[in-house]
C-alpha cells in the first residue's frame, strides 16, 4: 500500500464525519507522511506503522460521536455514539439487554408518575371549579373504600341516552357500554379473559354496583357512598403530591442513568484506546 491508497481508504472510511473534520484529519495524516518521508522512511513502512486505516477511522469516528454526545445529551446523539462504539467492539450485547430493560422499566414508572400528576391536577382543578362555579357536579362521583380498584369513580352525565358501544377483539377482550331502555340501567364493562371491571348505573343516575375481579378473586360492591367535596379535594391533592414527587425523582434517576451510560461508554472507549495505542 502506498501513501495515496492509504489516504483514500482513510477518507472513504471517515464518511460519517463532517467534510471539514474529515479534511482536517486527512491533512494531519498527509503531514505525518511528509514528516516520515523527510525522516527517510518509505511510504509502505509508514502505512504499516500507522495500522489499518479503517480501524483508525472507527476510533476517530467514535471519538467525535462521544464528544457530540457529551456536548448535547440527546437521544439522537446517544444513538450515533452507540453505533460508533458498536463498530469498535466496545459494546457487549449481553450487557445491553438488562440495561435496556432497566431503562424501559424506569421509563414506564416515570410515565406512571406523570399520569398520576396529571390526574391529580385534573381532580384538584375540577374540585376548585366545582367550589367556585358549581361545575362539574360531584353528584355522580362515588367513593370506593374497599381498597380494590379505583378509589374515586365518576359516573358521567345523567341526562341523555348514552350510545351503545361494544368492542370485541375476538381473544376474550371486550369493552362495552350498554344502556337498557326498559329499566333505565347502564352497564359499563371492560373484560380481558378472566379479568373484568364492571360498573352498573341505575335509572336515577346513581352508581348501583361495582364489580372487579381477576379470575381468582372478585369483589362486588353496591350502595357505594357518594364522595364529599372534601374527599375529592384530599384525593386530588394527595395524587398531585405523589405524582409530583414521583415525576421529579423519576426524572432525576432517569437523567442519572442516561448520563451514567455516556460516562461508562467513554470509559470503555478510553480503556480500548489504551489497549490499541501501545503494543
Amino acid at each position: 500500500m502506498n501513501r495515496e491508497q492509504y489516504l483514500q481508504r482513510l477518507a472513504a472510511a471517515l464518511g460519517k464525519l463532517g467534510p471539514a473534520e474529515r479534511d482536517e484529519i486527512l491533512a494531519d495524516y498527509r503531514a505525518y507522511f511528509d514528516d516520515a518521508a523527510a525522516d527517510g522512511r518509505s511510504e509502505a513502512e509508514v502505512c504499516a506503522a500507522l495500522g489499518e486505516p479503517e480501524r483508525l477511522a472507527r476510533e476517530l469516528t467514535a471519538e467525535r460521536k462521544l464528544a457530540d454526545w457529551e456536548a448535547d445529551k440527546s437521544p439522537a446523539n446517544m444513538k450515533q455514539a452507540l453505533g460508533a462504539l458498536a463498530g469498535l467492539g466496545v459494546l457487549n450485547v449481553l450487557l445491553a439487554f438488562p440495561y435496556l430493560f432497566l431503562l424501559t422499566w424506569l421509563g414506564s414508572l416515570w410515565l406512571g408518575a406523570v399520569g398520576m400528576l396529571v390526574a391529580g391536577l385534573l381532580i384538584t382543578g375540577g374540585w376548585a371549579s366545582h367550589s367556585v362555579f358549581g361545575w362539574p357536579s360531584l353528584d355522580n362521583i362515588v367513593v370506593n373504600d374497599s381498597g380494590v380498584g379505583p378509589w374515586l369513580i365518576a359516573a358521567g352525565p345523567r341526562d341523555g341516552t348514552p350510545p351503545r358501544i361494544r368492542i370485541e377483539s375476538g381473544q376474550g377482550e371486550t369493552v362495552r357500554i350498554e344502556p337498557d331502555p326498559a329499566s333505565g340501567k347502564l352497564v359499563i364493562e371492560a373484560r380481558d379473559g378472566d379479568e373484568h371491571f364492571r360498573l352498573e348505573r341505575d335509572a336515577s343516575g346513581k352508581l348501583s354496583q361495582l364489580s372487579i375481579g381477576d379470575g381468582a378473586d372478585s369483589i362486588e360492591l353496591s350502595g357505594l357512598p357518594k364522595a364529599s367535596s372534601g374527599s375529592v379535594l384530599v384525593f386530588g391533592l394527595v395524587l398531585t403530591l405523589l405524582g409530583l414527587i414521583g415525576t421529579l425523582l423519576g426524572w432525576k434517576v432517569l437523567r442519572w442513568v442516561w448520563h451514567g451510560t455516556g460516562r461508562w461508554l467513554r470509559w470503555q472507549q478510553r480503556l480500548l484506546a489504551g489497549d490499541t495505542a501501545v503494543r
Binding site: I25, D28, Y29, A31, Y32, D35, A36, D39, V46, A49, L50, G51, R55, L56, E59, L60, E63, A273, T276, A277, V278, R279
Partner: peptide, 25 residues
C-alpha cells in the same frame, strides 16, 4: 508536532503510531 512526539516516545516505548491522532484529538 505529532511526528516529533511519536519519534520521542518511540525511543522508549513501542507505540502504534496511527492511534496518536485520536489521542491528540
Amino acid at each position: 508536532y505529532v511526528y516529533e512526539i511519536v519519534s520521542t516516545l518511540a525511543q522508549s516505548m513501542d507505540i502504534s503510531e496511527g492511534t496518536i491522532y485520536p489521542l491528540m484529538r
